[in-house]
Design a protein around this nucleic acid. Structure first.
Length: 891
RNA sequence: GCCGGAGUGGCGAAAUUGGUAUACGCACUGGAUUCAAAAUCCAGCGGGCUUCACUGCCCAUGGGGGUUCGAGUCCCCCCUCCGGCACCA
């Protein structure tokens, strides 16, 4: 046994032993309650970043905690290994995406093993392997059978020079990443999954998970789906027999409509285009071009539009209103037309202000109803968007918005110019990608038979070994004749394969099922096995996935349920959305790329805050920002160096201690020394007692030593100091258990540090320790090690071995997370704060079970308090048992 | 722009969910130990006033307002920063 703590040595020792003993291999066991702990699977970029370390450390803390409580824990890991970076590497460096990906996986697996996360590596999966993506295709075919997969035209980013489609990232700033050409939109047939069919269920089933998911995530999902009840209203057009249909949730404001605003591609506009003036034509074209550009959200888009000269007739008032084309109306969203009510909608208000359109108030606040009936509308300086009472609305005046919405909708329905409707913002999920590195969509196009699904027994449709990666022209897959040319599964005539591959979100939508049964070659997973492990008890991942991934994944479970494969609705009971790990990013405008911190000269203000930077090489300007780590192209902080220097236990403790899991964490390395110091303090303390020979481990013990079993059997006398130490031990167990149960992982580290400080404050040396002292020390040490294990499993195993001679993590281990003894933890005397008018004026010591009356009496008897109450009237006394007394005085 | 979140000492943060603001750690300062350094140990550490000292008082949780006996915590407005926005994953 080394006396000195040497992280690398013990970490390697235990990683090897865990591997050999299969410590973390999960097996179905009906005797024990299962716990499925899952972290979002990483994209194998080749390099671990601090966001990963944080994510997996949180998962490991929970896995260890549950394992020590006797749960049957499943804690798997795999790779989200399809995606653009591999293909970009192929284009830029000429490597094969498969080799590039496999290399990266090997590197990251090594790094993860060095971190010592308690994964069941026998269940490792990777999306890019045919054994896995076979079942992406399997699910696709099932969804096709269910009518959930369909094909329709949809737009993609298109570079006219490279004649290729681009992702949003490749088209950022509206220009092609390769050649800088202005990006356009192109329409092409693509495959969609009908997630909208599940919109209501995705909303309603939130009630099943609301206890375990953060409210912010559910809110974002709710707003993303955005179910709104409202009314379709048809406006007839004075210059045409066509009608314009708009959707509104506020039909009660229709008397305030001052215009109909339509998208530039609106059919009526196309039809009447030639009749417009040159100015109108030019503006419409301009808006079209502008809308076709990929969105840059940083840039504020000013409202723009033009009056076409056409008129729509308000079906309620028969009033004609102008028809405008506006840049904020999209053909692809809603009906492509909106009614503009500036007085009661902020966007419409802004539009009306800019073009000086009339603004008519038709809803007023309840208490102003009377005046507004007779007065002209007040000059509004902003839109009044709340509900209220209708004014300036003919027959409907004086009605409440809520009633008016119902009655006016009914009126529109009976008069044939409208209908009530429920709309969703949620759109179907487009999964077609014109890329090589993804699951091929298992479809064949035949001239005689049409669109033909590949037979189930012919799955997987395998990706070819390689393809020409040029970054120009059609997708690489389309350039591989052996892949494209195929026999039609029906008529056996020559046919062509679909060359689009699936969105990588498909892979990550069902991987947690696969972990349950990762080697099944017939089915994605066995139902019975999945129903044992699933749903996931705790899912942990970045808040950046709050909407898309987590919505797709919920959708996929519901589809699996409808396929009869699982017996539940929601895939994850509890979700911990970890805050982003962000870091300073340096973007060189000259090099048009991100550079590392080493390459720049950083300017700081007096407080050390970064205010700017220049490139060391030539002093050119560098844009400094704080951005999430792992963002593609951005070089994050490399945790491996930190692990090498300080050890993985220290890195893990520090990453957990640095901030609460949900918070964003601005990464900085200073402070990790504190974690190392803490480990060393624990190490030294335990070794001092073990090596003193005062407690026994094996058979050849010191004759003066005594085992914990012997101690437990004796009736022990505890000194006041020993009592104090035991009290601290049990209070710490209470605190940490509470923290873990409520998902708080930073404060337990502080509690452990406090406990170790208390151990150092206990001044008894081994040589003259009584049996009671020995017991108190041993109890503190054992509890500390067990509670430390989730954070620093290597050092915990090592110390546990030192004091018990046994392993901690293995299934056969009898080590259990400690349980607090309330009687030992209880304080006899507590300090109560005494306030006068809410300000702390004194403190009194009372017995911890003092009654309310006792507290009040003690407070009023206190000399300092009497100074404040003398000659004044005591209005009331508020007593919060265990906390404080507040005396309220007057005069 | 739309949706969601965050802001507390020099720094990361804590605060039993409306009840002692600043636990724990980092950095810093002083002391012990040492030939010396590292390591370790002890002490101090929000700001301002007051007292020789004990002490006492006031101001502080991004800014402004409100509710309450009492607000970091609840409500309203504003500022700054971060995440997502459907082809980054």
């Amino acid at each position: 046994m080394d006396e000195k703590y040497f992280a690398q040595k013990i970490e390697r020792k235990w990683q090897k032993r865990w591997d050999e003993r299969g410590t973390f291999v999960a097996k179905i066991d009906d005797e024990r309650e299962k716990f499925y702990c899952l972290e979002m699977l990483p994209y194998p970029s080749g390099k671990l970043h601090m966001g990963h370390v944080r994510n997996y450390s949180i998962g490991d803390v929970l896995s260890w905690y549950k394992r020590l409580q006797g749960y049957n824990v499943l804690h798997p890991i795999g790779w989200d290994s399809f995606g653009q970076p591999a293909e970009q590497a192929a284009i830029k460096k000429g490597v094969n995406p498969r080799d590039w990906t496999e290399d990266n996986i090997d590197q990251m697996r090594e790094q993860l093993k060095t971190l010592g996360i308690s994964y069941d590596w026998s269940r490792e999966i990777a999306a890019h392997r045919p054994e896995y993506y076979k079942f992406d295709q399997w699910f696709f075919l099932k969804m096709l059978e269910m009518g959930l997969a369909y094909r329709k035209d949809s737009e993609v980013n298109w570079c006219p020079k490279c004649e290729t489609t681009l992702s949003n990232e490749q088209a950022s700033g509206g220009i092609c990443w390769r050649c800088g050409t202005q990006v356009e939109k192109q329409s092409r047939p693509q495959w969609f999954l009908k997630i909208t069919k599940y919109a209501d269920e995705l909303l309603d089933d939130m009630s099943q998970i609301e206890d375990g998911w953060a409210e912010r995530v559910l809110t974002m999902q709710r707003n993303w789906i955005n179910k709104s009840k409202g009314t379709f209203v048809d406006f007839s057009v004075r210059e045409s027999s066509e009608k314009i249909r708009v959707f509104t949730t506020r039909i009660d404001t229709i008397y305030g409509a001052n215009a109909i605003v339509v998208a530039p591609e609106y059919p009526l506009i196309e039809e009447k285009f030639e009749s417009f003036s040159d100015e109108v034509k030019a503006k419409i074209e301009e808006i079209k071009v502008e809308q076709a550009k990929p969105k840059d959200y940083d840039e504020e888009i000013e409202k723009d539009g033009i009056d076409t000269g056409l008129h729509a007739i308000n079906p309620f008032s028969n009033e004609p209103v102008p028809i405008w084309v506006g840049n904020y109306v999209m053909m692809s969203y809603g009906t492509g037309a909106v009614m503009s009510v500036p007085a009661h909608d902020e966007r419409d208000f802004e539009f009306a202000k800019k073009f000086d359109l009339p603004i008519r108030q038709v809803i007023s606040e309840t208490h102003l109803v009377h005046e507004h009936h007779t007065m002209q509308a007040l000059a509004l300086d902003q839109a009044f968007t709340q509900k209220g009472i209708l004014v300036h609305s003919d027959f409907w005046n004086g009605k409440k918005s809520k009633d008016a919405i119902k009655e006016m909708t009914r009126y529109a329905e009976t008069h044939g110019f409208g209908e009530s409707a429920t709309t969703y913002r949620l759109r179907d999920w487009g999964i077609s990608r014109q890329r090589f590195w993804g699951s091929p969509i298992p479809i064949v196009y035949c001239n005689s038979c049409g669109t033909v699904p590949v037979e189930f027994e012919d799955l997987p449709v395998e990706l070819p070994e390689s393809a020409p990666f040029t970054g120009v022209g059609e997708s690489p897959l389309a350039k591989v004749p052996e892949f494209v040319n195929v026999e039609c599964p029906i008529c056996e005539e020559d046919a062509k394969r679909e060359t689009d591959t699936m969105d990588t979100f498909v892979d990550s939508s069902w991987y947690y099922f696969r972990y349950c049964d990762p080697h099944n070659s017939e089915l994605p997973f066995d139902s019975e096995i999945a129903n044992y492990w699933m749903p996931v008890d705790q899912y942990i991942g970045g808040i950046d996935h709050a909407v898309m991934h987590l919505l797709y994944t919920r959708f996929w479970s519901k589809v699996s349920r409808d396929l009869g494969m699982v017996n539940f609705d929601e895939p994850c009971e509890r979700l911990l959305t970890q805050g982003m790990v962000v870091t300073d990013s340096f973007y060189s405008k000259k090099q048009e790329s991100y550079v590392t911190a080493d390459e720049v000269e950083i300017q700081r203000d007096e407080s050390g805050k970064v205010i700017g930077a220049t490139l060391k090489e030539d002093g050119s300007e560098v844009k400094v920002a704080v951005e999430k780590m792992g963002k593609s192209k951005l070089n994050g902080v490399d945790p491996n160096e930190m692990i090498e220097v300080y050890g993985s236990d220290a890195a893990r403790i520090f990453s957990m201690f640095a901030a609460p899991a949900e918070n964003e964490l601005v990464w900085q390395e200073s402070g990790i020394e504190g974690a190392v110091r803490f480990i060393q303090r624990v190490w030294r303390y335990v070794h001092k007692w073990v090596e003193s020979g005062r407690w026994s481990i094996g058979e050849d013990d010191d004759p003066n030593s005594v085992s914990i079993a012997e101690l437990t059997l004796k009736k022990l006398d505890f000194s006041d100091d020993a009592k104090k130490l035991r009290q601290k031990t049990h209070q710490t167990i209470q605190r940490i258990t509470e923290n873990f149960e409520s998902g708080q992982f930073n404060t337990p580290v502080a509690a452990l540090m406090e406990l170790s400080n208390a151990m150092y404050d206990f001044k008894v040396e081994p040589e003259n320790a009584s049996d009671g002292d020995l017991f108190a020390v041993r109890e503190a040490c054992e509890s500390l090690i067990l509670m430390l294990a989730p954070y620093a499993p290597h050092v915990a195993e090592e110390l546990w071995e030192a004091i018990t001679g046994r392993d901690l993590g293995i299934l056969e281990s009898d080590a259990r997370f400690p349980i607090a003894d309330e009687d030992v933890a209880k304080e006899d005397e507590i300090e109560i704060v005494v306030q006068v008018n809410g300000k702390v004026r004194s403190r009194v010591k009372v017995s911890s079970d003092a009654s309310k009356d006792d507290l009040e009496r003690a407070a009023l008897a206190d000399g300092k308090i009497q100074n404040y109450t003398d000659g004044k009237e005591i209005v009331k006394v508020i007593v919060v048992p265990g906390r404080l007394v507040n005396v309220v005085v007057k005069g």
